[in-house]
Design a protein around this nucleic acid. Structure first.
Lengths: 363, 363
DNA sequence: CTGTTAGCGCGTTCAG
DNA sequence: CTGAACGCGCTAACAG
């Protein structure tokens, strides 16, 4: 029978039952220090039939290690983040450390409260895909870092914080996709979802400014789009950029607007899979066919992209690997806190299927 | 300057800095007991510029509450589970409690080790979608329950454990879908994925036996399929049941096999979205059209189902709500440990779109 | 190799 | 209303 109020047998209960000192019991149960095989057996047996479970809280109190790490993302329900999470949790679990997950919906308050909760719970480290776009807005992250908690930025970098970052090359990914479209003869390419702005930007500068104040991933993708246009000397048309709120419903609406314009796009580039969904809805509503009437390339090669009619050309992001690398980096950072922070950039792959048609307006 | 080795300022540091007793500091910082506004102010200020963060571990040690709950599922990377998780985490976070997530890949060992980790970390409760199909195989769950940790079963029930269960009506969902197909005139309906068996069952009994030893959800779905067949007096054909390992690749292979058989199915029912992906691949490979050549209904109404050509008829599961209900139930269970366990059954919705064609072989 | 003792940081009596 | 003292369960020096 357990003696404590909480009901759980403690290490002293075991020691008593085994007829040895606490420390001996603690040593064998904790797996440290020396203890004779005979005593060990006695302790183990006593522990067994008392149903002893080591109290991780108490252990953490004295060791200062919780074997728990925190993960903060916008939405664990999202396929991208849940893929990353899986990668993180898998590699963490291999080292028998658990994962605390918090979704923020890109809300600053939620992110701050998440960080605080994790700090208070004394997690061994934090992996975060922050909604902050500026150093000033990332004070809570700097705080965690200053508390001595290792922090890894995943998917969204934020230079200047002096933290390790694990990201993909968003700019190159977007550039390659747009190039693929341009090479197929397209010149009017819609960019479905860009930086949200209050009014539609007319100048390129306005747009770039808005983007630089936006999420790392989104602004990089826009830059890549612009890069490709520049390379081919194609003029930038602001009416082809979606700047409203990022929901698949808004993506649909903006696409509809573009289709109804005299200078409608002949191709669409979507920066996220929800954007693809929205674009696809609009395309169907207007009775357009892919790729005959409109070509499409999107981000995130989910399994369904391949079974669409026609199969969609997509940019595959290594979600799981992103998580694995972030977790690895965190683990080594926990050991060795003193090396210089670095950025790990994973590459994407443009999976060419049948959603892009050559419209042969090229020499 | 912090005095402890861990670097973090403690409540006594604050007390000292504020020139008051520990208890006074503890009371204001912990938000309990009485303390004069003036002292309170002094303490708060001292805490502020010392950068004090309450140590949740220490607090949990004395209160016995961790404000943390554990979630165990097969795969957080899976869209169904990540949806459920989101529901759980959302409602938990509203009560400022965090969520520890562990994936098991349906492995018994991983599930056991997950439960142990959670018990040791003294989570306030556990929500699990267990891989165990029998009471005997669920001993680890019974153990957690006996340790006094509230446990809620989600998505997969296991009667006899005496635990609360939050599930959907799998049997009715499958039955309705099959009925819809039958009413459209179909009599040869493939069931893509059923209980894995070593050899293809020839008798209905064999199959049902295999199913009853399978996951709760899967066996219920098979029963629903059989129910509908029985209602209409349609004979059961074992060659239409997929009994190999559950991967989309195997789903594809089994579909291919069925298509090549003289008695090919005219409709397919898929019990999971990965099964749909596999079936869709096979359908394309054989050059079949939906719904002209083959009708299809699947589980899990993910956003992409609606933008397929044609839009797919799907069974929508309330994933988020499943999580919300499970979390709610857990929270009330944590308060009030003494009420009788109950099963909450959420209903699904058959979303009829264009993947089912009437083949009019009916009066 | 083993037992004793002192923290870890906070909640919580119990006098004053 | 305030402060001193003890306990939570475990690790870690330190003697023996």
């Amino acid at each position: 029978m357990p003696q404590t109020r909480t009901g759980a047998p403690t290490i002293s209960d075991v020691a008593k039952a085994a007829g040895v000192g606490r420390a001996t019991a603690a040593r064998t149960l904790g797996g440290y220090g020396y203890v004779s095989p005979q005593m060990q057996a006695k302790v183990l047996e006593a522990a067994e039939d008392l149903g002893y479970r080591t109290n991780a809280l108490a252990r953490s109190m004295s060791t200062g290690v919780t074997h728990t790490l925190g993960v903060i993302v916008a939405d664990v329900g999202n396929s991208f983040f849940s893929g990353v999470l899986r990668g993180i949790a898998d590699t963490a679990r291999m080292h028998s450390i658990d994962t605390l997950v918090i979704s923020t919906d890109e809300s600053r308050e939620k992110e701050i409260s998440a960080i605080n909760a994790l700090i208070n719970k004394r997690v061994d480290g934090i992996i975060i895909s922050t909604a902050a776009r500026t150093l000033a807005a990332a004070e809570h992250i700097a705080q965690a870092r200053d508390q001595g908690i290792p922090v890894i930025l995943v998917d969204r970098a934020l230079p200047g914080l002096g933290l390790d970052e694990v990201v993909i090359d968003n700019r190159a990914a977007a550039r390659d996709a747009i190039r693929c479209l341009i090479q197929a003869g397209h010149r009017r390419i819609a960019f479905v979802w860009g930086p949200p702005t209050l009014s539609r930007p007319t100048l390129r500068r306005e747009l770039v400014d808005a983007a630089s104040d936006n999420l790392f991933t989104e602004s990089e993708r826009l830059e890549g789009y612009l890069d490709a246009l520049d390379d081919e000397g194609i003029p930038f048309d602001p009416s082809l950029i979606m700047t409203s709120e990022k929901t698949s419903e808004h993506a649909r609406e903006e696409m509809l607007r573009m289709f109804d314009s005299p200078a409608a796009p002949t191709a669409v580039f979507c920066t996220e899979s929800d954007a693809v969904i929205g674009a696809l809805r609009a395309i169907r509503e207007r009775g357009l066919r892919i790729p005959e009437d409109i070509s499409l390339i999107g981000f995130d090669d989910n399994p369904w992209a391949e079974v669409m009619n026609p199969p969609l050309s997509m940019i595959a992001q290594p979600m799981h690997e992103l998580g694995v690398q972030a977790a690895r980096r965190l683990l080594t950072r926990i050991e060795n806190t003193a090396t210089a922070p670095e950025r790990i950039t994973l590459s994407t792959e443009l999976i060419c299927r049948d959603s892009v048609k050559s419209i042969g307006s090229r020499p």
